[in-house]
Amino acid sequence: MNPVQGFIQPELVAQVGFAAVVTLTFTGALIAVFPRNILYNVLGLIVCLTGVAGLFLYLGSPFIALMQLLIYVGAICISIIFAIMLSRPLHLSLPSRRLPKVGLALGVGLVVFTMLIGIVYRTAWQPAAIRSSDWSVTTLGTYLLTRYDLVFEAISLVLLVAILGAIIISGYARRRPS
């Protein structure tokens, strides 16, 4: 046993870590609820969910922790911010919905829906042969970098183009004299 381990108790480290993560979670939750500025609420939510990811890590499942970060912090919070950016200010009056238009949309939607349901019923679906029962992270990773390599790389290219485009178009709109 080396002297450092003897000096700092492992349990103490664990408890301090736990306390830190829980504090992070609760602070985040409070920020998510109380401030009046909605952007602060979202930032609070990000802090809170990062704390939850820390909890998963504490419980010994790093994969779920990473997924938590990726999906909730990375995707959902960012899309909330985008939704706030793109929605019109609340004090402006909304254009009123026209009833015939809504009716028509509902009608078309209903027809398409019935058609699709009908197709599902009238087709004799064959269950696919089971190809594998091993769906561990390793297997998924292997698939992503072998069989689905090209798609995987192409998606990153799509994201690059989308980000560049967003930067150019939003910068463009801002600087344009109007």
Partner: peptide, 23 residues
């Protein structure tokens, strides 16, 4: 010659054009 690849390639070309039009 694989449907997912076709779909992603199609999206990549569409995205580029979506940006070019309002430029």
């Amino acid at each position: 010659v694989e449907l997912l690849t076709i779909y992603v390639a199609l999206e990549l070309s569409s995205y580029s054009l979506y940006i070019l039009v309002p430029l």
